[in-house]
Each structure stands twice: as C-alpha cells, then as structure tokens.
Design a protein around this nucleic acid. Structure first.
Lengths: 237, 237
DNA sequence: CCTACCGATCGGTAGG
DNA sequence: CCTACCGATCGGTAGG
C-alpha cells in the first residue's frame, strides 16, 4: 500500500487531451448505462437521506453499487451533481405519481394552470392530494424525496431556484384547490399560509413516520392523511 | 508555505505526557472561558445552521471568533461535541423561555408533570405556547434551535436519546394542554398525532420564515401563531 | 467502468 | 489559546 514514485505520462500536445469519459460507447465489459446510473442514484439517495450529504463519501456510494470509487464520475460529474440528480428524480417521480392520481378526478397534467373545474369537489381532491403526497413521501419515493427536504441547505441559491421550479409544478394543483376552498370559506387561514402549514405538517412526517410498523399496506397513513385534511379545513366532519 | 522537515521533540518518558488542555488556569494572555466558549457556540450554530454540519469546518468556526484553528479544541473536544453543545444550548434556552412564559399563567417549572389545573384555559395556554415557540424558533434562538431540527441525522442513536430527553421536557406542558383539549373534544385528532402535526407545521416555519421582512417587532408572527392554533382546534372562532 | 493516482483539506494533537 | 504540525481521507482525474 505504499505510494511509489512514478513517472507521470507527459501531456501530449499534438492532439487535445480528450477524456475517455466523453463518449457513450462502452469501452469495457458491462457498462449498462441506465441501470448503473439509476443504481448510483438510489444508493446516493439512501445514504444522503440516512447519513446526510456531508457525511456520505463518493466511496460509500460506489461501494454500495459494487463499483470502484472513481467510476461514479463516469455517470455524474461531481458529488453535487449526484445530489441534484437525486432531488430532481424525486420531484419528477412525485409529479408523475400526482398526475396519475389526478386522472381519477378527470384532470389532466395541466390541472394546475387554471382554476378548478366546477365539477370537482375541492374537499375530496384535497384529501386525495394529501393521501397521495404521504404515499410518495413515506412509501413510494421515500428514499428520494426526503433528501430534498433534508438537504436544502446544501444547495446554492441558483440550484435552489432550479429545484424550486419543479416544486412549484408539483404544488400548482394544490394552490388551485386551496384557492377554491378559501373562496368557499372553508380554510382556517389564507391560502399561502395554509399551504406552508400543511406542507410543514406533512413533510415533517418523514422525520417520525416509520415504515416498518405499518409495512405492507401503510394502514396508518390513512389516519395521518385524514387528520391532515381536518387540520386546515373548517366545518369538521 | 512549504512544509519543512523538523526534528520532532522526543517524547519525554519520565513524567507522563500531561496535556495543557486539562487544567483550568489560564496559561496565556486572555482565555476568557465563558465568553470564548459562548462565542464559539454562537459561531458554530450560525454556520451549522446556514451551511450544515458537514459543510462547516472547524477552521470556519475558529476564524469567525478570531481564533486559530486548533484553539477551539481547548473548549470542545471535537466537532461533534460542538454540535451537541449547540443543540443542548438551544433546548435549554427554549425550556427557560417557556418556563418564564408559563409564569404568567401561574404555572411553575413542573407544570408538565401533572394535569393542568382547572383554572387555566387550555385554549389560551395553547395559543401562548405556540406564540412563544415561534418566538424562540424564529427570533430569540433562531441560530441554535434550527440546528437541532436540521442536523438530527448527524447524531448517533445514543446522542438522539440524550437530546430527546430535553425535547420531552420542553414538550411536557404541551402534552398536558393537548390532553385537556382532547378530553373537551376540541382537538381535530388524537393527542399524539396533533402534537406531531402541530410541531411539523411550526418547525417548518424555520425553513420559510424570513426575519428580515418583519424585523423589529415580528409583526407577522402573530398571524402565523393564530393560524397554527386554529389548525388543530375545533370550533374555529 | 477499472487502475492508479494526486492535491487539498480536514479534524485533531503535542507542547508551551 | 497559539504554533506547528500530522495522518487520513476525500473529491476528483488521467488514461486505458
């Protein structure tokens, strides 16, 4: 393990030094791009989530997927890029799940762009959004999404804006629902505050909710979800 | 800046190597214990809060208080010890603030140990607790307390239990109030869930509330506080 | 994606 | 609390 002195290869100036990492064609055995990239993403998410970004080394991540340290840099240009990719993955997955759920209300992907149609009950839609949110946060995407919540401080202002745009996309429908409810006098406070409080209560669950206890069904999630609904609605059932 | 070879002082084996750090008497100019320790604590809190524990170096902290890197180890045995001290400081301060506030309700420091006296209105007390909590979290101890919320993952299970005991101490009165309200049928859900949701909504404010906007008075805090009250209470005013 | 590295930094310590 | 360090690690890179 001693570091031996070695002649460094002279920088060859005839052709510009083109790095091997640039090209997509596989040079070795099995570089299964999509799979390996996703594996890295998942391991990174898992570790960032549990140990935090700062306490996770790129070696930790590589080892988890059975790679050698430097190899992750074939897929991601830096540790920070991995963090961003994890957050983006979580958000786009969340958005996707939400779009699917909205279909059962006859709503398309652009549902957040305009006021709610008259034929949807905002109370029922809110309940569904909340239930779906908990499902994403605590079950389906429990590795990815919390990283965004916990590691917000690890982003630069510019990076935050980027992630923020995706969050806005996710929250657009919520805003419509809350506005509709507020107009009907059914919110305990103004829309903006209601949204912040609601997401506060919901997102905080990722700190105390343990999957293990209610595995295989997520029974208790219904309880949390309905409590959250009643939180911001007037006229309790 | 080149690192020159130097003869290392031979370990003198006659007397056991006693480190200078062990004794409390000042060996040099101005080691103003209490002050310097607190200064370190404050700087650490500020940096841990803004940049996260992992992204803050012991040098960052030392520089902020005008010390040289190694000197912080005179006051704290490790970076981790600094983190723990920050969290403990935040919690004990919070507990202290809360005890003071409770006096105006005729309640002593042990108010959380037994059911609430008949003569206190649980609704008013809850409102006061909430308002006070926001004041601690966002104004008075805004450097210390959020570190505990944000850096929970940086603690070992054992360390978490230690901090957890202080949290329980802080939350004891809250539990009494919530139990009282639940018995009176004024909570939107069961006590345990109400507590989690409420603290979720409240603690989350440290992520979006900016002091700058409402400085000099914290006007808007009242709005947030009253909204939070209405969140978990039935029979909205 | 592996091998074989490197420069910089970082937490921490000895001794005064 | 300062000076003067050190060992280990860490993010990252060149070249194949």
């Amino acid at each position: 393990m001693t570091r031996t002195e070695k002649a460094k290869p002279a920088r060859q100036s005839a052709t510009p030094p083109k790095r091997g990492r640039g090209r997509p064609r596989k040079t070795h055995d099995e570089i299964n791009d999509g799979n390996r990239r996703l594996a890295l993403l998942k391991s990174a998410a898992k570790l960032f989530r549990r140990k935090s970004f700062g306490a996770t080394t790129t070696r930790d991540i590589a080892v988890e997927v059975g790679m050698h340290n430097g190899s992750s840099y074939y897929h991601f240009k830096s540790k920070k890029a991995l963090l961003l990719a994890v957050m983006e993955e979580g958000l786009t997955r969340g958005i996707r799940h939400q779009i699917e759920m909205l279909q059962s209300f006859g709503l398309g992907p652009e549902a957040g762009a305009a006021p709610l149609p008259k034929n949807v009950d905002p109370r029922r839609l809110l309940a569904a959004l909340i239930r779906n949110h908990l499902d994403i946060l605590l079950i389906k995407e429990r590795e990815f999404v919390p990283v965004m919540l916990f590691e917000w401080r690890s982003l630069t202002p510019h990076e935050r804006r980027g992630i923020g745009r995706l969050q806005d996309e996710y929250e657009a429908v919520w805003m419509r629902v809350l506005e509709s409810l507020h107009r009907a006098g059914q919110l305990v406070c103004e829309v903006k505050l209601a949204r912040l409080m609601l997401f506060g209560a919901l997102n905080w669950t990722s700190r105390w909710f343990e999957t293990s206890k209610t595995e295989q069904g997520g029974l208790d999630l219904d309880g949390v979800a309905s409590a959250a609904s009643r939180l911001i609605l007037i006229e309790k059932a």
